[in-house]
């Protein structure tokens, strides 16, 4: 505490200078995307770097007019949010059971859930394709939601479980003697108490699937189910060659939704990441 108060005058400037440099360094890829995205194709691949390129909206117009970019963006957002919702609905009760009830094989079940994450995706790719084909869900965002949810379910369950384990048992005992049943306890006591943890798990899940490519490509065969990550691949082949400025803009657009979510819940996120380490 004292050391923060002692920082005055010059010290503070140095601190801001260092933090600004670090911020610039972290944001560099994003700035670079924007710089490439808004310059003409002729200024992208050159022998000498161009520090102050000409502003060009060619790529910007192209991605919106030549491709259904809004649809891809919508597909991405819907599939990701849908999958996170599915994860939370399944993981919260599972984590509650794993952290609170005593039964035989509890640890084994917990490990089994985690082990689903250890499998190489290629092993299940073909079965999943057939599964969704038989269900008639190929090329829909519903299938994407389910696959994304499956990818993250184990990790979300484990994160939430560890937060639940940290909640004092007394809290539940109190609620029980106050007259609450299991579901009320879960809904009114546990979930609010670990909300930062749930948010943390949700954000980590989103980050994991925003760039998902393999299963998306497998399931999506038309723009109906294309997401931003698959859309990126549109600009690498074909008669036009690799369209770098369009790729940069699409990559930037794919980054924006998660970025906005993280900004919105920043407070909870930092609390969630440190919770458990510091006694509340």
């Amino acid at each position: 505490m004292a050391s923060i108060r002692r920082v005055k005058g010059e010290n503070l400037y140095i601190r801001y200078l260092i933090l600004s440099c670090w911020g610039l360094f972290c944001l560099m890829p994003v700035l670079w995307f924007l710089s490439i995205g808004f310059r003409p194709r002729t200024e992208i691949i050159t022998a000498q770097p161009i520090y102050f390129p000409t502003l060009s909206l060619d790529a910007w117009h192209m991605i919106w007019s030549d491709w259904p970019m809004a649809k891809y963006l919508r597909n991405s957002v819907a599939a990701i949010f849908g999958s996170v919702m599915i994860d939370l609905v399944l993981a919260i009760p599972a984590a509650y059971s794993l952290s609170r009830y005593e039964y035989r094989g509890r640890e084994d079940i917990g490990f089994y859930i985690l082990s689903t994450r250890m499998m190489a995706p290629a092993i299940v790719a073909i079965p999943i394709f057939f599964l969704f084909r038989n269900l008639g869900l190929l090329d829909t965002i519903w299938a994407l939601m389910l696959v994304y949810a499956a990818i993250n379910l184990s990790i979300v369950t484990w994160i939430i479980r560890s937060y639940m384990t940290d909640i004092p048992r007394e809290l539940e005992d109190a609620a029980r003697t106050d007259g609450a049943g299991d579901l009320r306890i879960l809904w009114e006591i546990i979930i609010p108490a670990i909300l930062p943890g749930i948010i943390t798990a949700a954000v980590i899940a989103m980050i994991f699937v925003i760039n998902e490519f393999l299963f998306t490509l497998l399931i999506a065969s038309t723009p109906d189910a294309y997401t931003m990550s698959v859309a990126l691949a549109n600009f690498t082949g074909g008669s036009d060659g690799v369209i770098y400025n369009a790729i940069a803009l699409v990559a930037f657009l794919a980054f924006v939704p998660v970025f906005l979510v993280v900004i919105a819940i920043q407070k909870h996120l930092s609390r969630g990441l440190t919770m458990g380490a510091v006694k509340g």
Partner: peptide, 20 residues
């Protein structure tokens, strides 16, 4: 069941609901 016994309990760690 505990919730039907009409007992009230006070705990060592207070056990107040932190979000309320």
């Amino acid at each position: 069941d505990a919730r039907d016994r009409d007992v009230a309990m006070v705990f060592q760690g207070y056990a107040l609901y932190p979000n309320m």
